[in-house]
Write a protein that binds this DNA or RNA. Structure first.
Length: 874
RNA sequence: GGUCUUAUAGCUCAGCUGGUUCAGAGCACCUGCCUUACAAGCAGGGGGUCCUAGGUUCGAAUCCUAGUGGGACCA
């Protein structure tokens, strides 16, 4: 006997091993078939699976499994990202625990440790994905730092440098004092903070008083280059060109006028600090002010600060405030709401810093990337992200691509002793160029020094859809030609610019073609209070534990029950519980069919009819599901299937064909039912791969190595709308009778008699047996007149009577019927009004008008029946 | 501050090109059932001013405008 509760753990393990063993996820170019390709958004190599990955990868798996079943050559490429900042931080921390400082070891030693660490802890996340059922082609697993992908990055750098798209220059960049590296604009997260606005007096050199400036960063006064006022500000006109002394250090600076200053902010006097603020920097350029950088790379103050040398910037702020107060320079402190940029990876407060870095020009590359999204060559789902995408692409700024780290692709720029830069794929090539270009024939490799910096992680990720198929190194290979462009990309909107936009740029740059046709943007998984899931809040469930509790199928369907594209998902265990219950429901439906005793023979006519009815429902659902998928409504498609399986198949179809207790089922009926079950399993397989495989394998004889993974996805046949309508009437009647039973508190075991006053008695003949069974009737009798002492109801135009001693207050019964009548009369009136409206008849579509006429006719017959009923009630 | 987006049942959301009297699903809730596939279940039920105010239209949850409250991105 099969267990009545579905136990997923063993089953999941068994089938995943089977799938791998039989290479069911493996793909290779097959010209006979259409390719369907997804590249995984590579998770950080040292990351662990979180709920966002679960959602994201479930969606990818649903898409890829469906494509595979539809006979496409489905290829899902997995892999990991080296995540330079995050991983380097982890390796540094690991070394620190061992008592090793990064500064004490060489680059080579560090990288050795880093690779060891990666080999030990990296890729855990990929094993976790297997638990989820992810059908990746694991033989294709790639890593952004492996030799071939590393080389692709180097080649890209050289190519773009030679095209003049990459340059090196001193610019104001976002400096992360904790990671001690520059960051791109996109890696800076702005946060609201409650800051203080300090009002500081600067004495005039001529002794005629002082000016007061307002600043949130008093520790930068030592870097001041000027005081700036708006020329239109009458308060300060007399001060233009005068000099003030910076408090505490007594350095003299000028007061200059510039329209940049806002009159009504603070005091209207702005301290200009070109080294530590982007706007001040530009103001400084305009007025040729000196740049005085008082900060070290780690955020401590340097000698140029004069005061607090070696002290951290935040500590220095506290101390300088204290000193300014003591010496009477600080006149006022206001509370001030402000925003501060922080590092996406380390969380440290970003310092704008003037620094020599490598940049990529974005304007030219952004153009095809923008155009091809706006014209829908590449579709974003949901489309609302097109707006956000456009505004970003239209305002794109040059990309700072160098990072002061060791873990990553080292920039292929080589310097001669005099600082001359040679960009080449390796030192040998650089030497050749140096010799040829500068006639430096005596030069040897040791005379060249490679740039110590590495490239931004995204500078490798943006090549991912191409580089996983070696399309950069070997652009004409069979794989890239077959699999590229890929089809769908599934990712979060938070990396739309970091990653998606740049992949599109890289696609057009390298292959003059889009990298994927659709981008499905998932929402963020939040907890049920709407908070983002995070380690520090501890509100993120452990995905593997969820799988343990609810089964992978349960978790997958649970996540998708409420995950419309682009909308955040408020996660609750409850959803997975619902998914698990669904697994169990399917399991028990199958137990029922498996447990039946079979006798040879043809199906009863009502069973044949029920099979035809359910087939229509199934076909309709397949049509709906395909429509949903075409619009990336993955969640809606699942709900359609859920309702079909639970309500129509289990609740109705199985109840109709289920034989009485200990009675056998006819072989033909069982065959039909199992055939439908088989279709349902195939329809559901993309969502619930494990349980569907388990059942599919025993529904019928299967060959060794065969799998539902490669079985055909159901194809919709015809839908018999009339039959569906007829069954709707049956179910409505059944519900009414059950309602009577419930309200009278009668046992479901008590068979009732039913009398029908029907317009068309013959219409009931084929479904009588079904009515008897579902409503538990002892008899159906057709009558010409009303039946006394009976519970009555009307469906369509027909009247139904269930003879029961009527102990209800006739007035109540009458009131209810009158209420229904009034409703129908109102309905009729509104439809009549509509049809009498010439503009409606003239403007509305013909079939709509026809439907309205039908509605009117139906309402009229029903009203008539109700009136008869009421007449009898007196 | 700018741009975009959103507001529907207690909760999470559907409602697709305006057209069933359209107000719907799941969960939650209430009532009754351990009816031999499933209590992780079955039968039935209650519940909404479709944010507010205008407008367009024969007709508005759906389109437009303004306001209010959320959210996202950008600075």
């Amino acid at each position: 006997m099969i267990d009545k509760n579905y136990a997923p753990q063993e089953i999941e393990q068994k089938w995943y091993a089977y799938w791998l063993e039989n290479k069911l996820f493996a793909s290779k170019p097959n010209p006979e078939k259409e390719a369907y390709t997804i590249v995984i958004p590579p998770p950080n190599v040292t990351g662990v699976l979180h709920m966002g990955h679960m959602l994201n990868n479930t969606i990818q798996d649903v898409l890829i499994r469906k494509a595979r079943m539809e006979g496409k050559e489905a290829c899902w490429v997995p892999g990991t990202d080296h995540a330079s900042i995050a991983t380097e931080a982890k390796v540094v921390a690991m070394l620190k625990d061992k008592g090793i400082a990064k500064s004490d070891i060489t680059r080579e030693e560090f990288l050795k440790y880093a690779f060891e660490w990666k080999d030990k802890y990296g890729g855990i996340i990929l094993d976790q994905l297997k638990k989820l059922g992810a059908s990746c082609d694991w033989d294709r697993t790639r890593f952004t730092m492996e030799p071939s992908l590393y080389q692709a990055v180097i080649d890209t750098f050289v190519r773009l440098y030679n095209k003049g798209l990459i340059y090196r220059g001193v610019r104001m960049v976002n400096w992360d004092p904790q990671g001690k590296t520059a960051l791109s604009d996109e890696e800076v997260i702005y946060k609201d903070v409650q800051a203080k606005l300090y009002h500081i007096q600067y004495p005039l050199v001529d002794g005629s008083g002082s000016v007061t400036i307002a600043t949130t960063r008093p520790e930068t006064i030592m870097a001041d280059a000027a005081i700036c006022v708006n020329p239109a500000d009458e308060r300060y006109v007399h001060l233009h060109g005068k000099k003030v002394r910076i408090p505490l250090i007594d350095r003299e600076i000028s007061i200059i006028p510039d329209e940049y200053v806002t009159l009504d902010f603070g005091t209207g006097c702005l301290k200009v600090t070109p080294a530590h603020d982007l706007n001040d920097y530009e103001l400084g350029l305009k007025h040729k002010l000196p740049v005085i950088d008082i900060l070290n790379d780690d955020g401590t103050l340097n000698e140029k600060a004069v005061l607090f040398v070696g002290v951290d910037r935040f500590e220095a702020r506290k101390r300088i405030v204290k000193q300014l107060t003591e010496e009477g320079y600080l006149t006022k402190t206001d509370e001030y709401k402000s925003t501060v940029g922080t590092s996406e990876r380390t969380g440290a407060v970003i310092e704008p810093k003037l620094s020599l870095q490598w940049f990529m020009k974005m304007e030219e590359m952004a153009k095809p990337a923008l155009d091809n999204v706006m014209n829908d060559n590449i579709q974003l789902h949901p489309a609302k992200f097109k707006n956000t995408y456009r505004s970003w692409m239209e305002n794109v700024r040059d990309w700072c691509i160098s990072r002061q780290l060791w873990w990553g692709q080292q920039i292929p720029a080589f310097y001669l002793e005099d600082g001359t830069v040679i960009v080449a794929k390796d030192k040998k090539e650089a030497l050749r160029i140096a010799r040829d270009k500068y006639q430096l024939y005596a030069l040897v490799e040791d005379d060249l020094t490679q740039d110590p910096d590495v490239l931004d992680t995204w500078f490798s990720s943006w090549l991912w859809p191409i580089s996983v198929f070696d399309g950069i190194e070997n652009p004409d290979n069979d794989e890239i030609k077959y699999y590229y462009p890929t089809n769908d990309l599934v990712t979060g909107p938070d990396i739309l610019f970091f990653w998606v936009a740049r992949m599109i740029m890289a696609g057009y740059e390298w292959r003059d073609e889009l990298p994927f046709k659709n981008v499905y943007l998932t929402g963020i998984v939040r907890d049920k209070q709407g908070r983002k899931m995070s380690k520090s809040l501890g509100n993120s469930p452990d995905p593997l534990e969820l799988i343990e509790r609810f089964g992978a199928d349960g978790v997958r369907s649970g996540l998708l029950f409420s995950a419309p594209a682009g909308n955040d998902l408020l996660f609750d265990d409850k959803l997975c519980e619902q998914g698990r219950n669904f697994s169990n429901k399917i399991w028990n439906a199958f137990r029922l069919l498996r447990g039946l005793e079979v006798v040879p023979g043809a199906s009863l006519p009502e069973h044949v009819l029920a099979t035809a009815w359910f087939t229509s429902k199934l076909n309709q659902t397949i049509i709906d599901v395909q429509d949903d998928f075409s619009k990336f409504r993955i969640s809606d498609a699942l709900l359609s299937i859920y309702n079909l399986v639970w309500d129509d198949f289990c609740g109705k179809y199985l109840e109709i064909i289920k034989p009485a207790y200990q009675s056998p089922i006819h072989a033909d009926t069982l065959r039909d039912a199992l055939s439908l079950f088989d279709s349902l399993m195939r329809l559901m397989h993309p969502y619930m791969p494990f349980i569907t495989e388990e059942i599919w394998q025993v529904i019928d004889e299967r060959a060794e190595g065969e799998s539902i993974c490669k079985a055909e996805f159901p194809i919709a046949g015809p839908v018999d709308a009339a039959l569906v309508a007829q069954f709707d009437v049956v179910f409505e009647v059944v519900t009414k009778i059950r309602e009577i039973r419930n309200s009278k508190q009668l046992s479901p075991k008590l068979a009732l008699a039913l009398h029908i006053k029907a317009e068309n008695q013959a219409a009931y003949a084929p479904v009588e047996a079904i009515l008897v069974k579902l409503a538990n009737l002892e008899s159906i009798t057709f009558v010409a007149d009303a039946v006394a002492d009976a519970q009555t109801f009307v469906v369509k135009a027909d009247q139904f009577f269930v003879p029961l001693a009527n102990d209800e207050d006739p007035a109540v019964v009458k009131a209810e019927s009158e209420k229904e009548l009034a409703y129908l009369q109102g309905f009729k009136k509104s439809v009549e009004a509509k049809l009498a409206n010439e503009k409606f008849v003239a403007n509305a579509k013909a079939d709509l008008v026809e439907r309205e006429r039908q509605k009117l006719a139906d309402a009229e017959t029903k009203i008539q029946s109700l009136q008869e009923l009421l007449a009898r009630l007196g």
